[in-house]
Design a binder for these strands. Structure first.
Lengths: 188, 188
DNA sequence: GCGAATGTGTGACAAAAGTCAAAAAGCTAC
DNA sequence: GTAGCTTTTTGACTTTTGTCACACATTCGC
């Protein structure tokens, strides 16, 4: 339970009473390699904090899976669109490695937001950080070639490349497996 | 001053005292066509609410301007990265049409967040909506061709296409002017 | 009005990435 | 270890998009 406390502390100050309130709402969970936290079509009702392991979120397009996010240890994972709307999700979430999670339900979180200004502030700051990250990631696609996007990935998450199948990394970069394979061949 | 009140009400409930507090911090401003709200290298210290007009945010890459966002009436505009870090921005913001703005400084906003839980909740929900929009927009780039991105634009913001020079629209879609010109030629 | 910017469209060609097919390399389960 | 699976690589070819050059159109200042 310590990891998430650290993760929150990085983002905002949490007084002890807020933390106790928050902790109360968390549910622990384990999930095996290859298992699904949710399938496309499910409605997303939780935000997950990944303690250990690795998750991928993917979108289905014409029967093919396109990875839209990898979630690393000590990060949060959900499908914001479905969570907010209450509608079925277009996203699935799968564990690429055995993973341990702490999850909080949407309804509990809404209650916490109302009960505690500090927790609300935490939510806001977390979203700010996510949006900033997303903006950077978007610029990869607007401004740079497949090769450059791969190089950024090498810089930013070198370890991830060893943990993820090439096909899924390719789809995350918005390209075909074959293209990524060729890009990697260049630097041999 | 009524527009922004509506804009906020769409996102969250604001009681009268919160609104008065918030309004206190707003500064009105007009800006002519072609003028810059900020230049790349400036540090971003405000969030702007666009009452009327049209703004574009752009990024410089090898001397070329790449539009990263258009801001329409009744929407918020800032550079989140520079605003959060206090570092010089890589982004410039220019008025494409004569525009009227209401602006709030970062320091005032931080104070407001601390003073009012409701205002903090507003900030969080606004960020949620922005992040959801950004996620959708990112999927355009990962999954779809230049032509398809243009078609999405036609669906989502048909009016905008009449107000924006083709070159800027092209850079927003991550393609060259010539390519966009050809895409448009197809549907003649 | 006129001329200079600025913005847009077209053509010929080059580069990047996708497609399809098949071979090579890695894993897994007996 | 080996058969059977999945993943990755390679090759030939196609499609998409970029590049460069230039013609045409529009806007704006004067």
């Amino acid at each position: 339970m310590t990891n998430i406390r650290e993760g929150i502390r990085d983002i905002t100050q949490f007084e002890e009473p807020d933390w106790l309130l928050f902790r109360e709402a968390l549910t622990g969970r384990q999930i095996g390699k290859g298992q699904f936290l949710m399938q496309p079509g499910d409605t997303c009702r939780h935000i997950h904090f990944l303690q250990t392991g690795l998750l991928r979120s993917f979108y289905l397009k014409e029967g093919e899976e396109w990875t839209v996010a990898f979630s690393l240890e000590n990060s949060f994972c959900t499908d914001l669109k479905s969570l907010r709307s209450g509608q079925p999700s277009e996203i699935g979430i799968q564990a690429l490695e055995p993973s341990t999670l702490l999850s909080i339900s949407k309804s509990d979180l809404i209650t916490l937001y109302q009960q505690s200004h500090q927790i609300e502030a935490f939510g806001r700051r977390l979203l700010e950080a996510l949006l900033e990250e997303q903006e950077e990631y978007l610029s990869w696609f607007r401004l740079y070639s497949a090769k450059e996007r791969y190089d950024f990935m090498l810089q930013k998450h070198p370890a991830l490349l060893q943990r993820v199948p090439l096909g899924q990394l390719a789809s995350y970069l918005g390209i075909r497996r074959e293209t990524l394979s060729r890009i990697r061949g260049l630097r041999a």
